[in-house]
């Protein structure tokens, strides 16, 4: 793995490839945890599809010491057998009723098929960003790929489940956006600022009825 400085107080750790295997991504997540748990004065650590980004306090540790420490952690990663951590799956209930799935007709298939294709897979969380709790997921069935809307909507409702290109995800709050909306979840994606998922977790969407949606939504609000 390579280490490269990208600004005064940030460096990236990456493999010389654009797309990583799941095992390689798991290694990155493990490295991220090791860096967080180390004695280094870390301000932020983050993981993306193919790299770990580290921001540290340059007034407390010199860049060369940070790089050296990270090199040691990387070497240790190679020696330690990455124990296949118990796969954490977070279930997200989604109501695919047409009241919420306002772009379902764009998919050129019966709604039952859309639901089947969307709910059958376990999606890997590669990173979080854009909005607190917004997940970048991998594993969408190719038959569900759909280009973003030409003109983004000014407001997409909180909880909306959508598809854009080869991505699927959930809007954790009201936001403008160009995703194709196929359903809505009543659950909170963020609790007191902390997202309910982490990179490396898996997400499964489960279809619920509109009555169940309303019940869960009421529970949330009370």
């Amino acid at each position: 793995m390579n280490i490269k400085e990208i600004s005064e107080d940030r460096l990236v750790i990456f493999k010389d490839k654009n797309t990583l295997t799941i095992k390689e991504h798991e290694k990155l997540i493990s490295l991220m945890q090791q860096i967080e748990e180390s004695m280094m004065p870390i301000l932020n650590v983050n993981v993306s599809y193919n790299a770990v980004t580290v921001q540290w306090d340059i007034f407390k540790m010199d860049v060369n010491d940070v790089k050296e420490n990270i090199q040691t952690l990387i070497k240790n990663l190679d020696h330690i057998k990455i124990e296949t951590l118990e796969k954490k799956i977070v279930e997200i209930p989604v109501c695919y009723d047409s009241e919420f799935g306002i772009d379902q007709d764009k998919f050129d298939m019966p709604i039952e098929e859309l639901i089947e294709l969307h709910t059958k897979n376990e999606y890997r969380v590669y990173m979080l960003g854009f909005l607190p709790g917004f997940m970048y997921l991998g594993g969408l069935d190719k038959r569900l790929y759909k280009e973003r809307l030409d003109t983004p909507r000014k407001k997409i409702d909180k909880g909306s489940v959508g598809i854009a290109g080869g991505q699927t995800g959930v809007y954790p709050q009201n936001a403008p956006g160009g995703w194709n909306i196929i359903g809505r979840t009543p659950i909170e994606m963020v609790k007191e600022g902390i997202p309910i998922v982490r990179p490396g977790n898996y997400v499964k969407f489960n279809s619920i009825t509109i009555d169940e949606y309303r019940r869960l939504n009421n529970d949330k609000n009370n």
Binding site: I42, L43, N44, V45, N46, V47, Q55, L128, G129, F130, L131, P132, G133, F134, P172, V190, G193, I194, P195, P199
Partner: peptide
Amino acid sequence: RTGVEKFGQ
């Protein structure tokens, strides 16, 4: 705030 960029904040 530090340490919360990984949450999207």
